[in-house]
Amino acid sequence: MDTQWPRWEVFKQDTPHKPHQAVGSVHAADPQHALLTARNIFARRPQAVSMWVVRADDIFSRTKEELAADPVNMESEKTAALRPYVVFRKTSHRRSMTFVDYVGEVSARSPEEALKQARAKFTDVEALAWWIVPADRLTKSDPSNETIESWFAPAKEKTYKQQQYYATVGSHVSKHKTGREDTDEA
């Protein structure tokens, strides 16, 4: 029996005018649990105003290479109802973290059709990878001010906010040489 909890992809929004970005994944029992652990893991110190989670199984993803090798077939689900899909796109290999950014929404009858629309609609930058998510599968953190204050505001006052700060706290052993240690070394 597989005892692992399902995997959830986590999207973090740094400020109100930036897109939600995929920052990593968590294992959790349910969407609310995933949001709670995601907040602890990805927003304890880094800046954030909102988080989304979605089950990894609910993401339809294709890389540029996959699309070149095997174009997506959209003929299968003509009879299904239109539903909104959320589109995420990766456009750069430069960042140390593999950000996949929110770019917008499309309305389609299947993830394949949503991907086709996304490729036609979001053409400003070449996409290295697409993630297509049914909008109703995304679970979002509460947008109220009280939650933003409770979940994200305390991060501003934490020490060690960024890795580069680590070296500035504490000091090297050589600065604390005492007579006794000098004798030990002699």
Binding site: A29, H33, S150, P154
Partner: peptide
């Protein structure tokens, strides 16, 4: 209080689950 509200949501969820 800001942090404590978040703690409570976390443990509230665990008691339920």
């Amino acid at each position: 209080l800001r942090e404590e509200r978040f703690h409570l949501q976390h443990t509230y969820a665990w008691v339920e689950r």
